[in-house]
Structures are given as C-alpha cells and as structure tokens.
Nucleic acid binder design. Structure first.
Lengths: 211, 211
DNA sequence: ATAATTTGTTGAACAAGTTCAACCTTTCTA
DNA sequence: TAGAAAGGTTGAACTTGTTCAACAAATTAT
C-alpha cells in the first residue's frame, strides 16, 4: 500500500517536473525571438498541451482542416504534400525546438494541402486554434512573437529558393547535411531526396561520386 | 500674374489630391489584411512618404543596409541577388499594390544580399526603419498587420517551392504568365527566365515549342 | 539617324537529372 | 523466424535543361 502510494506520488512529481521541463524548452525558444516578461510567458505556455505521437503516425493529413499548432519537444517530423503526379514533396522537417504549422489551413480553416508525419516516436506541445486566437487578443506580444518568427521563416524560404536556383543537386545535398546534420542523420535517402527536389536514385549516385 | 498663381494653386491642389489618392491605395491594401479603424489607418499612412524612382534605378543595392520599407504605387520592380557564379536570381517582382522589403537586412541591420531595381518609372511610398519600429510600439495593430502579411508570404513561398520541385520549366512558365499576366507582360525574357530559374535560351525554346 | 548595347533566336554539343528495371540489404510484422 | 515490405544501389537509355557561339531584332544613347 505504502509502495503503491509512493509510485503514484513519484509519477505525479515526474509529470510535473516533466511538464515544467517541456515548457522550459518552449520558453527558451520564445525568448530567442522576443523580450518577454515571465507572466506573459507563463500565460502563453499554459495553453500548450503535450501530445505523444508514434513513429509513422500523422499529426495532419492532406484534406483535413488544421486546428492545432505545434512545437516539437522530442523526435522528428516531415511536412510534405503529394502532387497530382503522386510524388511526395517535402517542404521541411521539424525536430526538437522547431515549430509545426500549416499556416494556410490554420488561418483560413480550409482543407490542408499538407501532411505532417512523425519519423520517430515524438512529443509535441499543441495549442488549439481557439486558444491561439484568444492569445493574440489577450497577450499582445504574441502578435510580435509570431510576426518575427514568420519574418525569419520568409528569409529562410527565400534563401532556399536561391539555393535551388543557383546550386547543383550535389551542392544542395552537401549544404543540407552540413547545416542540418542532426536532422539529416535521422532521414532515409528517400526523404532527403524529396526535400532536395531530386530522385532517390540520383541521390544515391551523388553519394557514390562524393566518396 | 493671375495666371501664375492659378498654376501654383492648381499644382498644390493636385498634389494634395494625389497624396490622398496614393495613401488610399495603401489603405485599401491594409484593409485587405486586418480590420482597422480609420484613426489607426491615418496614423500608419502618415509615416509613408512618396518617392519617385526612374527606370533602371536602384532602391537598394547588395551590400547596403536597408533602412526603408516600401509599398508600390505605380510601376514595377525586380528583387534579385547575384550569386558567386555571377548569375542573377530574381526572388520576385513587385508592381502596383505590392510591398517591397528586405526583411533580413531591415530586421538585423546587416548588409543586404538583395538588389531592388525599378523596371520602369515608378512611385513608391517609403517608411523609415525608425518610424516603422515606433509604429509597432504605438499602434499595436501594426504587429498583427505584418504578422498576417508575413504568414501569407510564407504560404506563397511554400507553394512556389513545390512548383519548382514538381513542375517542368514549361509548366512553371505557363503558370507564371497565367497567374501574373500584368507583371509578365512588362518583363524581358531574361527577367522572366531568371525568376523561373532557367536560362533565357531555354525560355526561348519553350516559347517556340508552345506555338 | 547612327552607333552601341541589350535582347531574343537558333543550333550543336554537352551536362544534369530522370526513368525503368533488376537486384541486394535492411527493417518491419505476423 | 520467415516472409513481406521498404529502402538503397547500379546501369542503360532517355529527357530536360545548359553552354557557347553566331546572328538577327529591338532599344538606348549620342
């Protein structure tokens, strides 16, 4: 009996500790973007709920309406579309400390064009659309936070387009594995090639010629 | 004498009228993105000053630090980088009712990677960095405005990347002229090809084969 | 109006990347 | 643990797009 209680107690403490830990990563992330007081930070984080997703499971499937925004605590995701020809196009990956959103579907509540799939057992913090919209109103700095995050994202997309236009597939591959070694090491060649915009066969040939 | 005065008066009235007209386009643009009261709208617009730029002149040159953000009233611009191999890569064009910014340089006050050049005699409304930063503080809805504009821009960049990965050069060319006929009609083939990420020779061959 | 420059067109040789098919290795699953 | 499924490699033929060079057409500056 005593033993059981102590297990329960231990579990409870672990959960709380864990929960604080998980929000800590989110807090650190937010503080990278804006100066923010701890009250606002606590309010923001209080709306994020942890969720566990198993390898190969989907957080979002093409056609769904996206009702959550996510922040990755652990694991790795791929965000991709399937085009008319049936090919998968990876927009990006998201591992620990990255955000997961489908801005288009979330903003306009239209069916999503994107799929978000876990590449390994993963944990995310999710905020519902309702709570997010409420946060924009009640905690004004949230607007600034996402304005700044969005602007940084635009810069990243611009640079990626330029790389696609000015570099060969081999150069893009080298850039990718050098700049995102942690993510790259978790991927199959098929996933990497889809991100780079080439076939997996050609990636295989690039790797051979590099040696 | 009387004649001279009347000319002066006419010019003054025209300027005032013109200035209101020009801010009207900006106001309409802003109202597409956010619900906003007319006082805030007036405050925002009051910081934008008109500027005329002649064909081929630059609003920004690679290496400069960007100190303004612009809104195009008339004319057309191209935003491009020159990479190490000396090739021009057009990020995008901006004609009437579009925004002109170099987010990276403007945010971080680092030397710009971009060039912004007028393709024809053009007019823009410019806001200085100082005024923009002050606006973010004094008119909170400005944060929301640029947050939403930025998020729409991200969606556009994502779609463009997917087109680059999933469509042939010919399909991208057709998409471009069908979706941006006004801008496309103002461009030389060299400019169009640089936007599409192909050589101008190959664009010429695409056009021939299309007939 | 003329010269100079930029732009567009075309062809031939070439390079980059795809497709398809075969085969092997690894990983998942019953 | 066997069988199935998925991932990786390789080669040959093919397609897409580039490069370079030459020339014609259109703009621009003088």
């Amino acid at each position: 009996m005593v033993f059981q209680i102590s297990i329960k107690y231990y579990t409870l403490v672990r959960r709380l500790t864990y929960s604080k830990m998980s929000h800590r990563l989110l807090k650190e992330n937010i503080k990278k973007h804006v100066r923010i007081n701890s009250k606002d930070l606590d309010t923001i984080c209080s709306f994020f709920e942890p969720k566990y997703i198993k390898k190969k499971e989907f957080l979002l499937t093409q056609g769904d309406i996206y009702k959550f925004e996510g922040f990755v605590l652990e694991g790795c995701f791929r965000v991709f579309t399937i085009d008319k020809k049936g090919n998968e196009n990876v927009l990006h990956f998201a591992s620990k400390d990255w955000w997961l959103m489908d801005i288009d579907s979330f903003m306009n509540q239209t069916p999503s064009h994107l799929n978000i799939q876990a590449l390994e057992d993963s944990q995310v913090l999710l905020i519902s659309r309702t709570d997010k919209l409420a946060l924009y109103e009640s905690v004004p700095i949230v607007e600034k936070l996402f304005r700044i995050m969005s602007q940084k994202a635009i810069v990243a997309w611009q640079r990626r387009l330029i790389r696609n236009h000015s570099l060969t597939a081999q150069e893009r591959y080298i850039h990718f594995i050098e700049n995102y070694p942690k993510i790259a090491s978790k991927l199959t060649d098929r996933q990497t090639s889809s991100y780079l915009g080439i076939t997996h066969e050609f990636l295989s040939k690039i790797k051979r010629s590099k040696k």
